[in-house]
């Protein structure tokens, strides 16, 4: 397993946002976490990426226990993420945004930087090439010198993906990448996510939108009120009574069950 959580919990003053969640994400493929509003999906991502500390439970990544590892070290270990509310560096250029994704890979010494030694120049050239490649992946290669805040909403979302991908992560966490997109943009996004998975990066994504997830992912984990209520292939999720109930409410589920032939 590339990523594994066991009995992972996070409490907020009386509220259990993530409740003893077990997650097992194998190397490769596209995996989804879905659930209604407030189910704890973002909190789960924050726990995995190290932005929140668990109240209980363990997380391991690539065979290493990372429960206590700070977020920056997790990024260095090959984890990258995007945010539900866009968090590009608005006043930096698009290229600089992508370059921050390579931060963990740049390791020039201070003297080399100050004296502009050849090692530094080479590393910088290299990094720019990788950042450009990441921008090309999401189709932003022509906007490299634009200020990131000036990009359209959808482009900013794609820039976040490029920034996360620039460092060549093993695991990419996408928090509602399709939020606010129209159907055409969603289709393009699905293609992009498939391309990323095809490059060998494992993708774990959060979505509200069932149809988007169903066609895309290899496995689905469903959260409701912080608890994992389902884990398995997408087809089975659609049939699962617990999932249906969580999504459309108890009464509607009973009614649906009654109407079923």
């Amino acid at each position: 397993m590339l990523l594994q959580t066991s009995a992972l919990s996070r409490h907020f003053a009386g509220l259990v946002a993530v409740d003893r969640v077990d997650l097992a994400i194998p190397q490769g493929g596209i995996h989804a976490v879905i659930g209604p509003n407030g189910a704890g999906k973002t909190t789960l991502f924050n726990l995995i990426s190290g932005l929140a500390t668990p109240t209980a439970g363990q997380i391991s990544f690539a065979g290493q226990d990372i429960t206590l590892l700070p977020a920056d070290r997790r990024a260095q270990a090959g984890m990258a993420r995007t945010f539900q509310n866009i968090r590009v560096f608005a006043t930096m250029s698009v290229l600089d945004n992508a370059l921050t994704g390579l931060h963990a890979r740049l390791s020039a010494s201070l003297p080399a930087i100050i004296a502009r030694l050849p090692g530094f120049r080479r590393a910088e050239r290299d990094a720019i090439a990788r950042a450009q490649a990441a921008l090309a992946l999401v189709g932003l290669q022509d906007r490299a010198y634009t200020q990131a805040g000036a990009l359209a909403y959808g482009d900013q979302r794609r820039l976040e993906i490029a920034r996360a991908m620039a460092g060549g992560p093993r695991l990419l966490l996408l928090d509602e990448p399709a939020a606010g997109m129209n159907p055409a943009e969603r289709a393009a996004l699905a293609t992009l996510i498939r391309a990323i998975a095809a490059q060998g990066t494992t993708v774990l994504l959060v979505e509200h939108d069932m149809p988007f997830v169903m066609g895309l992912s290899d496995s689905v984990t469903v959260l409701n009120f912080g608890r994992r209520i389902f884990a398995g292939p997408p087809g089975a999720a659609r049939q699962d009574p617990g999932v249906i109930e969580a999504y459309i409410g108890h009464k509607a589920a009973v009614r649906l069950a009654g109407q079923a032939p």
């Binding site: 932005l51 977020a71 990024a75 945010f83 590009v88 930096m92 994704g101 931060h103 460092g167």
Partner: peptide
């Protein structure tokens, strides 16, 4: 600069 603009995002990019 990334830290100044958004500490959380910078942290997630591996900035110590």
């Amino acid at each position: 600069e990334a830290m100044r603009l958004d500490e959380t995002a910078a942290l997630s990019m591996g900035v110590n």
